[in-house]
Design a protein around this nucleic acid. Structure first.
Lengths: 159, 159
DNA sequence: CAAGATTGAGGTTTCAATCTTT
DNA sequence: AAAGATTGAAACCTCAATCTTG
């Protein structure tokens, strides 16, 4: 009686590298397009759009500085200056916390709410054309599910 | 006789946004891990690793400045300085072209070849653990195929 | 005049140190 | 002591202008 057929490394190195390389390249291509589109339609850089979007989709439209910084992948110090510029532009404002005087909230202003609402509408149109129309429904859902796996395993815990 | 059932916008806005958001988050999570791992194992920043990897996987181990710049998503000016630093570190060297005196090639040095060869081995191990082991073979291949679609449609043509 | 590469100026981000509050 | 936020210094990248070569 023979033992079980052991098939270690069924996927060879080349294939692992290649497939993840495709992820990098595809994502880079789309990021560049997205950056340009957001810049064109809203006039703001992509990081602004990302931060505003998070605020917009959060009940109360406000999040603590340090938390939003983590969510949008900024360091604490870098985010301070980002918020400085967005405040300068009138899109957000700082709000002191009542319960903990260490924390500062970032909140959408009326102008910021309008800016992101309008921008989001155009952005969705962009995503439909560049992603959904290329992949189709089924592949898009699969893609989302797959990337969710990676996020849940490796992503930071946003408590 | 009724006409065809038209089902426009079967995928609603929310789903499009959510799925692409998962791509962004998953990719960000893995990029951060990868950056840290490359930094730990090779001591170099991620952009260096990417550039060296391209050189390593190219016959002759040399590529024209402007072409490599495009491949790794750098501007011409930014890439000049990146190569300056990598040359300083002894990993690459500039080589003048015989046929066209405008072009300068970037070439791997002996030290660079060893550095990327060693780094790549560790990097593959990292990808197996963080990507392949999480997704499994089938999902990884699907993911690669899906992202290839996006790259081919939206990516730049590397002639 | 177009293409490849470099340079200097300017803007953005990280890092380490600091201050305040818990 | 630890966490949130800010600051100044340094690193990195982009952009526009420049130089050289085709």
């Amino acid at each position: 009686v023979r033992g079980p057929i052991r098939r270690l490394r069924v996927v060879n190195d080349e294939e692992v590298i290649t497939n993840w390389g495709l992820v990098i390249e595809g994502f880079a291509a789309l990021s560049e397009l997205m950056e340009a589109d957001v810049q064109r339609t809203t006039g703001m850089p992509l990081p602004w759009f990302g931060a505003l979007l998070r605020l917009y989709r959060t009940p109360g439209h406000r999040i603590a500085m340090s938390k939003l910084a983590r969510v949008v992948n900024f360091t604490s110090g870098g985010f301070t200056k980002l918020v400085d510029r967005m405040t300068e532009a009138g899109l957000v404002e700082r709000v002191a916390s009542d319960s903990d005087r260490r924390v500062t909230y970032v909140a959408l202003t009326e102008a910021g709410r309008h800016a992101i609402a309008d921008g989001l509408e155009l952005h969705i149109e962009f995503l439909r054309q560049t992603v959904l129309d290329v992949l189709g429904e089924e592949r898009l859902r699969e893609l989302g599910a797959t990337m969710r796996l990676l996020r849940d395993v490796h992503g930071p815990d946003f408590d």
